[in-house]
Design a protein around this nucleic acid. Sequence first.
DNA 1: ATGGTTGGTCAGTTATACTGAACATCACAC
DNA 2: GTGTGATGTTCAGTATAACTGACCAACCAT
Lengths: 159, 159
Amino acid sequence: MVLGKGQPNGTAQGDLGLFELPDRLGGQIGFVLNKVARQLHAMFTESLEPLGIKPQHYAVLVLLDASSPLSQQAIGQRLYIDRTTMVHIVDDLEKRGLAVRAKNTADRRKHAVSITEPARKVVAEAGRMADSVQEQYLAPLSQNERRQLLQLLKRLLRP
Amino acid sequence: MVLGKGQPNGTAQGDLGLFELPDRLGGQIGFVLNKVARQLHAMFTESLEPLGIKPQHYAVLVLLDASSPLSQQAIGQRLYIDRTTMVHIVDDLEKRGLAVRAKNTADRRKHAVSITEPARKVVAEAGRMADSVQEQYLAPLSQNERRQLLQLLKRLLRP
DNA sequence: ATGGTTGGTCAGTTATACTGAACATCACAC
DNA sequence: GTGTGATGTTCAGTATAACTGACCAACCAT
């Protein structure tokens, strides 16, 4: 998966030219996409460590912060997260006191997952870290280019 | 990591508007990046199955096709692949008769990893599949936008 | 000859994603 | 009222990719 640390060492920032990819790979958006995603993910993961959460936790909390409660299925659908992975994420959040699973009286199949008050502070803090990491990693691009990149990526995202 | 299948089901192509991300996430390039990378990776992985290789195998073979032999360390550095992961990848390729580890007489610490002749055919076929998958997934973007996306991503990639 | 570094391997751990099966629950047709 | 199909969630796994730390052989500079 696109995650983790692992930058090649022994090279200075900006030495990318020293390791040109062959055209066959350099022309593959998927390849570069994976590596970029992994680098950014690793930076974000590291920055969140003091808060005791991971990027996936943050994403779920952001959604719940915006609108609580939601079912696990609804969260998963909006965040492109697998149903079993969602079970684990909510397990973790419950364990950390950052979310609760309540009964959904209208449909007993579903949990009513809600954010807790302490979690709102965590989300705010993590949001600042997210912005900081993004600012740092996207430094090679202008603001306009960043908007452009995001817009292009969003247009690719399939349901 | 950014990999696997897992698209939410029950929604039609183009229904993205139905599941807008909150700004806090939608504005995070990392989040969208991960999801896009995973989708493209899943498509490519699936398309390669008939050839019995995976995207990482393909990447290594492409590099070796361009220049053989190379040490595992050299391959890893150019493809942003961890040294232990590289061991497994070359193990797999050897097992499939697609690469060989020979002795490096100049430096006995290093293997001289080379592509095999049969593997060149696999690389060619996989390359066509890579192009096809990329063509399909990038369909929402114009040719110019695709070049732009790739260029922006490459500028972000750190050593 | 020695110490530091490098290349590679091994034995793990971690994160994310996924499948299939199972069960409780819901909605709907009859 | 009943049966059937679908849904939401959980469980028990598997898979992929990445990673760390330790270890050993080999290389290089001193």
